[in-house]
């Protein structure tokens, strides 16, 4: 939602042109001395610790930088990228990362939409749902991982116990099963990210004009029709922005899966971030890991661009 609002704010003309500037000589497009003084304390750290490292990181991808080496690092052109192209382990990890990102983002969106629609109604236990929705949001990701490990625990976990109680068999070792590990961590990802998505969608819902809703109901439109014709068009910008952000965040996520499975079993849950982390800080291949980071950014940007352009264009007649 940050994206949507940011864009809205950038486009929006100022409500009232100020007749007088209290802020000295700062016309549009220029910053006066006072403003510089206000901006510098934040600008310097941003340049030194964010923008700089980012550019440095991209340039590292074209070097043979390694940890603990005494010889100076050298430019090696696109050699890292050529190696990556043939690194089947990396592409397998990339495939798992995409599966995970889509597998988390889509159910997360649908479930959050359902919850937001419910919270928008005058239901009685609303306050409780709002309070509970905080828990996944406020919890450290590491604790979320630990908590679900305990839920999934084959013996002492509640999941297998429930399955046994229902007479559905003995349950299984969810996180170490080759076929169950990825779905199991995806469920955790959905759980952990629901609150932010719900809050964003709820904000969008409260933005939809109530009168339109009532008018549509008068005309005899059913709930689904009302959703399609009134709610969804108003909600769409928020929905697009939050799914795009969720997709990025999920693709880049690390702590949850690190704690749950550490990439196992047999690499079945090794997300690209886990892969790059090991490459950089276990094997010390800084240049190669930086190249992985660049590829991740590039592919994600392309996917997002296609998604956003496609939705913005094609969705209008729906």
């Amino acid at each position: 939602m940050t994206l949507a609002t940011a864009r809205k704010r950038l486009k929006k003309p100022r409500p009232k042109p100020k007749p007088k500037r209290t802020s000295g000589a700062g016309g549009p497009g220029r910053v006066d001395h006072g403003a510089w003084f206000l901006v510098l304390p934040a600008l310097i750290p941003i340049l030194v610790l964010s923008v700089g490292p980012l550019l440095y990181g991209i340039s590292l991808a074209f070097t043979d930088s390694q940890s603990g080496r005494t010889e100076p690092t050298q430019w090696i052109g696109t050699l890292n990228f050529q190696d990556l192209l043939h690194d089947t382990l990396f592409w397998e990890s990339f495939r798992i990362g995409l599966l995970w990102a889509v597998g988390v983002t889509v159910p997360q969106f649908l479930l959050a939409l359902g919850l937001a629609l419910l919270l928008n109604e005058e239901l009685r236990l609303r306050w409780l749902a709002r309070a509970l929705a905080i828990i996944p949001w406020a919890m450290p990701e590491v604790v979320v991982g630990i908590m679900w490990r305990i839920v999934y625990n084959p013996d002492a976990g509640i999941l297998n116990e429930t399955i046994r109680d229902l007479g559905l068999g003995d349950g299984r070792d969810w996180l170490s099963g080759l076929s169950t590990a990825l779905p199991a961590v995806i469920v955790v990802g959905v759980w952990a990210g629901m609150p932010q998505t719900t809050v964003a969608l709820l904000a969008g819902l409260q933005n939809t004009p109530r009168e339109l809703h009532e008018a549509a109901a008068m005309d005899g439109a059913g709930a689904w029709r009302r959703f399609r014709t009134v709610t969804w068009p108003a909600l769409k910008p928020v929905a697009l922005a939050i799914t795009a952000l969720n997709f990025i965040w999920n693709f880049n996520s690390f702590a949850l899966v690190y704690v749950l499975t550490n990439g196992g079993p047999g690499g079945r849950t090794r997300l690209p971030m886990l892969f790059a982390y090991e490459e950089a800080f276990r094997y010390g291949q800084f240049g190669y890991a930086a190249a992985m980071g660049c590829v991740m950014v590039a592919v994600i940007s392309v996917i997002l661009a296609v998604h956003l352009v496609g939705r913005l264009r094609g969705g209008d007649d729906a």
Binding site: T2, L3, A6, L10, R14, S23, G26, P28, G29, R30, V31, A35, V39, I46, L49, S50, V51, G52, P53, L54, Y56, G57, I58, L60, L245, I248, W249, F251, N252, F254, P272, M273, A276, Y277, A280, F286, A289, A290, M292, G293, C294, M296, V297, I300, S301
Partner: peptide, 28 residues
């Protein structure tokens, strides 16, 4: 102030969300 600097800062806020931490953490 609607300055270029403010726009650049807003852009940075958005872009900084998209980069994988691994690309930032190695140089840091």
């Amino acid at each position: 102030h609607r300055t270029r600097l403010a726009k650049a800062a807003t852009g940075w806020v958005v872009v900084s969300q998209a980069f994988p931490f691994v690309l930032v953490i190695i140089p840091l």
